[in-house]
């Protein structure tokens, strides 16, 4: 749109709406199709916008003020967290926190997996000394060997 029209646009639109058409005595508009079409569309939109005007001034039903105060009281006693959750900032912050938690969580899991901590192997600390020397007479040695075998079987059974 050319500057001369742009500068007088509001006057043109007001004049156009009052006469009900988008023709203008302005010489530029008559010769410039770009400006005239843009002004025409803006005038049409002006008509649409004016359709949002309420046909009459509405009065609220009786007791409106009391209901407003009731709402204020209800809003006042709500917890800080509710207000936080209802605000756009709060919701965004919650989403951001969740995203960070997911990212950190997946990093920790991948790092632990890389280190082999998540392979499902059970490491049992045992203080059984299998290599204890078997000494003494034959009967005693046989008992010691049997005891070692029994302990080993218990260990593998666990």
């Amino acid at each position: 749109m050319h500057e001369s029209i742009r500068h007088r646009l509001e006057d043109l639109l007001s004049a156009g709406s009052s006469v009900g058409g988008h023709s203008s005595p302005d010489g530029h508009l008559a010769s410039c199709s770009e400006c005239s079409s843009e002004v025409a569309v803006m005038q049409s939109q002006g008509v649409l916008l004016r359709s949002l005007r309420a046909s009459e001034e509405l009065e609220p039903p009786p007791g409106f003020y009391a209901r407003v105060m009731q709402r204020i009281e209800e809003a006042g006693v709500r917890s800080v967290w509710t207000a936080f959750a209802e605000s756009r900032f709060g919701v965004r912050l919650a989403y951001a926190s969740l995203t960070i938690a997911i990212i950190l969580g997946s990093y920790v899991v991948s790092a632990e997996r890389r280190d082999g901590h998540l392979r499902g192997q059970t490491i049992v600390a045992q203080d059984v000394d299998y290599a204890a020397p078997v000494t003494g007479d034959l009967a005693h040695q046989r008992d010691a060997v049997l005891e070692n075998i029994a302990l080993r079987q218990q260990g593998t059974a666990r």
Binding site: L58, P60, F64
Partner: peptide, 30 residues
């Protein structure tokens, strides 16, 4: 209140919603 009601009604064209939103508007103002 009348102005606020009229603005809301002009936009929403629904009287039932107008009161609820008008209450919300004044609570916000408060």
């Amino acid at each position: 209140q009348a102005k606020v009601f009229s603005i809301i009604y002009g936009i929403l064209r629904n009287r039932n919603d107008a009161e609820d939103i008008a209450q919300q508007v004044f609570a916000k103002i408060y």
